[in-house]
Design a protein around this nucleic acid. Sequence first.
DNA 1: TATTGTTATACTCTATAACTATA
DNA 2: TATAGTTATAGAGTATAACAATA
Lengths: 147, 147
Amino acid sequence: MPTLETSLKNPLEFRLGYQLRRASVIMMADLTTRLADLDLSPAEASILILIAANPAVTQSGIGRALGVKRANMVPLIAGLISRGCIAKEPADGRSHSLQVTDSGTELAKGAQRIMLKHEAHFFAELSEKERNILLARLSGVWLDTQG
Amino acid sequence: MPTLETSLKNPLEFRLGYQLRRASVIMMADLTTRLADLDLSPAEASILILIAANPAVTQSGIGRALGVKRANMVPLIAGLISRGCIAKEPADGRSHSLQVTDSGTELAKGAQRIMLKHEAHFFAELSEKERNILLARLSGVWLDTQG
DNA sequence: TATTGTTATACTCTATAACTATA
DNA sequence: TATAGTTATAGAGTATAACAATA
């Protein structure tokens, strides 16, 4: 916990991009700590949740959805398989379809519960309406770049 | 520009932390591209702007304000000095006070102009009121962790 | 020709430990 | 004892290039 440098003038504190990144870094750190209880990284948890929601998806598909390069998906998927959370079977000879195992299903549910508590910790005071507006604004940044 | 995986269900798209990170990554990439015109990284630009706003600040102080570790400030400050943007002089024997040079002042102004255009690109449709609310919500995440 | 999975590799960011000099 | 600056280093996360097998 760093000391707050109250004596410094910070022109950046009024920049949306700066505050966006700042908030993101803080939340990622919190989520990382919470998910450590399940021995999952945020990336692993996200992958697990996406596979659970999309049976028979390929790892390239997951990578595209999450913005993770093909090459970087390999060790992540291998780790989840070696832990028995997910399983893969040949799909069309070059691709493999992924499924969550029973224990993977439970783990995915646990990860989602943690994410809800994590989110509530930071945004508890938001009304449902405010929450949806914030969500829409943030989604808009993404959609903006996609045309 | 990755292909949008419209076929995948993504339970994470309703998670604030997920959208926060997603938006932050996209904005950082855009800012990095824009600041490259000035041959500055986002970190260098932020440091330059903070020194310009706080003459005689130390590099440890900048690091605390931006969340950059002491050790990681060293090459960043050295780079800005070698480019003639900033100068340091002994303060109390163990610390050095930093100032922007004339060219550094211009560079800082240019960086701030770029940041404004960058922000406007993503949040042009926001009213001043909405912008302030969003800013307050994001700042709240930071203040939350500081007690 | 394009895509999937894979390996190897490099680069950036961030984190820690240790040291010197100073307060 | 605590802080400033520094060095070296280790660990993530992310990026590209190349390859084999398949579509």
